[in-house]
């Protein structure tokens, strides 16, 4: 086996793990990392995105439009949830554990009752390509590119747009922002919707590659929380390097010792990173700010 094949395969595995970690985590990075809402219903926002994507594709829309619908649907649900529940809990973030756990029960079982125990898949587009002895799925590369694009878009959104700057200001010092005439309620709503929409996007992107069942969100949630927590509060400077480190550990351990060690290695890496950098990666990078 030649070196190029080995290198490409390692890169592919890394990219694949990176995409999964980053895409599952991005929505949570906004909702939990920035806003401090411990969102145990994160997986259900992902499920919502996946279901809407699959449903619209079954209805005849092309996949990219379907994913867009899934993202928007999740964002809309996000607005609703923020309005009805989360809005009342910003003062006491720990209580969001119970509320979002409740929401997740409602969403999972509600979907089971309304849509049924499973939903037909949509099939993975684009086919495969060959490098050396191995063939790879092209869609996986698309996922990796999508993960990078999402990171870039988030960086741009929170640093270069008026909304992004207002959102960060509002979340850091709400009363100050309010005093300066910012409609903080609206900003909170939009930020939460943004996080929910990102979760929906992850769901939509992974919908073609996965079994669609009401409990599918559960497969994302551990990776998402772990990435966000060790990343810290900054979406771009936290989630991206955290995803990178964890993806190296996970793909490396998985290819070396199998999936079990990939998972256990991931968890051990989390413990070590937290021990070394008690404020998370972005806390370390942005020492002066914290």
């Amino acid at each position: 086996m030649d070196i190029a094949t080995l290198v490409f395969s390692a890169l592919y595995q890394f990219g694949d793990a990176f995409a999964f970690l980053v895409l599952s985590a991005c929505g949570l990075a906004v909702i939990f990392g920035m806003m401090g809402v411990i969102n145990l219903a994160h997986g259900e926002f992902i499920m919502c995105g996946a279901y809407v994507t699959a449903a619209t594709v079954h209805a005849g829309l092309p996949l990219p439009l379907g994913i867009l619908c899934g993202t928007l649907a999740s964002a809309c649900v996000g607005v609703l949830v923020e309005l009805l529940v989360i809005r009342h809990l910003y003062e006491r973030p720990l209580d969001t554990i119970v509320a979002t756990w409740g929401l997740s029960l409602i969403a999972t079982q509600g979907t089971l009752i309304m849509v049924g125990s499973t939903m037909a898949g949509v099939g993975t587009p684009f086919g495969s390509f060959q490098v050396g002895a191995y063939s790879y799925s092209i869609y996986r590369i698309v996922l990796f590119v999508a993960a990078l694009a999402v990171l870039g878009a988030l960086y741009a959104l929170f640093n270069w747009t008026r909304f992004g700057v207002l959102a960060r200001a509002t979340i850091q010092v709400p009363h100050m922002a309010a005093a300066l005439g910012v409609d903080t309620r609206l900003i909170y709503s939009l930020t939460f919707a943004c996080g929910a929409g990102l979760a929906g996007l992850a769901g939509g992107l992974y919908a073609p590659t996965m079994t669609l069942v009401p409990t599918m969100g559960a497969t994302f949630i551990m990776e998402a929380f772990v990435t966000v927590v060790i990343g810290g509060a900054d979406v771009f400077l936290g989630t991206a390097p955290a995803g990178g480190i964890l993806a190296i550990v996970k793909s490396g351990m998985t290819s070396w010792q199998g999936q079990l060690f990939g998972q256990i290695g991931l968890l051990i890496a989390v413990i070590i990173v937290v021990r070394v950098l008690p404020k998370g990666i972005s806390g370390f990078v942005l020492r002066e700010r914290t």
Binding site: S9, Q13, F20, A133, Y134, R140, M210, A218, T219, Q263
Partner: peptide
């Protein structure tokens, strides 16, 4: 509960079997 199989797929391609026995359980 694992839902991502890129590495396993590559391992299978490396081993070049005649067929694969899949004893996978659960929706994930």
């Amino acid at each position: 509960g694992v839902s991502q199989f890129s590495q396993s797929i590559q391992n299978i391609q490396k081993a070049k079997p005649d067929f694969v026995v899949t004893l996978l359980v659960g929706t994930a």
